[in-house]
């Protein structure tokens, strides 16, 4: 009976290849970010200048040949200060994101896999850090150790890891209960295989999204703290700090205050675009 119904091993028609194209929005984000990073990294090489050297005779000079981006109210080079501020924000954000991602993902998988008491205690730990809005936590750490960028770094990492933890835990829980993982276990595959073939391919793209949003959040938090004078202290160049310093001069020298504003805008916009879909 079967022989009459089956014409032989003819496979179903070849499928359309899976879409591997990177979305345009993400490409634009990568382009913007590359521009900002190139500016931050290449400026000290191509145009070495001390961001702290004052020259009151040359205060608030408009952009020109000698100073491509002009000078601030103390006659310091805006080019040098802006690139130094971007390097600070970028490296602090990258460091925090990396520090948060590793324990966040590992603990998330652990909590979902082990369940029971391990899951409950880790989730409680997450609740502890989520009880308070992140900036309040960072602010208080900044008060414990003023003038210390490590306090910002620790504070921001402590806030960021929860997002990784929660998403990884939720994804892993769903996946572990899925028929695909159950089948792999029945077929005798070990935990390393399940992480490599089932969990990681789903978690990896998530890490990029959460990481980009996390970096954007970190950059905005650093600037906010600098802006209210409780973060990085002068004379270190920092985007928020530069804005508050230049605010009194915005009528005389609008180009000066606009620079850190445009810089933070491009940086955060680039990261949001790289993150792709909206935050969940």
């Amino acid at each position: 009976m079967i022989a009459s119904t089956i014409p032989g091993p003819a496979p179903s028609p070849a499928p359309v290849p899976m879409r591997t194209r990177i979305p345009r929005q993400r490409l634009i984000g990568v382009a913007i970010l590359s521009g900002v990073v190139a500016f931050a990294v290449l400026t000290p090489i191509l145009w070495p200048a001390d961001p702290a050297r004052q020259s009151l005779r040359h205060a608030l000079v408009a952009p020109g040949w000698s100073e491509p981006l002009g000078t601030d109210h103390l006659g310091r080079s805006m080019l040098a200060r802006l690139s130094a501020a971007l390097r600070l924000s970028l490296s602090l954000a990258l460091l925090s994101v990396a520090t948060a991602a590793v324990p966040g993902v590992v603990l998330g998988i652990l909590a979902a896999w082990k369940g029971g008491l391990v899951d409950r205690s880790l989730s409680l730990l997450g609740d502890v850090f989520m009880a308070l809005p992140g900036l309040l936590l960072v602010l208080m750490l900044a008060a414990i150790a003023p003038n210390a960028p490590w306090a910002l770094y620790v504070g921001i990492s402590l806030v960021l890891w929860i997002e990784y933890f929660r998403l990884t835990r939720a994804t892993t829980r769903t996946l572990i209960a899925s028929p695909a993982v159950q089948a792999s276990r029945l077929l005798g595959m070990g935990p390393a295989y399940i992480v490599r073939r089932h969990l990681w391919p789903e978690i990896a793209p998530m890490i990029l999204t959460v990481g980009a949003f996390g970096a954007a959040g970190a950059i905005m938090a650093i600037a906010a703290l600098g802006f209210v004078s409780v973060g990085v202290r002068p004379p270190t160049p920092e985007l928020g700090l530069m804005m508050v310093e230049l605010l009194p001069y915005y009528e005389e020298a609008p180009f000066a205050i606009l620079q850190p504003i445009v810089a933070i805008f491009l940086l955060v916009l680039g990261l949001n675009l790289v993150a792709g879909r909206d935050r969940i």
Binding site: P179, A183, L186, L187, R197
Partner: peptide, 20 residues
């Protein structure tokens, strides 16, 4: 051997690692 006890699933696509 334990692996000689096996299962066939209701929804075939959900029983394979999806990305490989």
């Amino acid at each position: 051997a334990p692996v000689r006890y096996q299962k066939i699933y209701q929804d075939p696509p959900s029983a394979f690692p999806p990305r490989v």
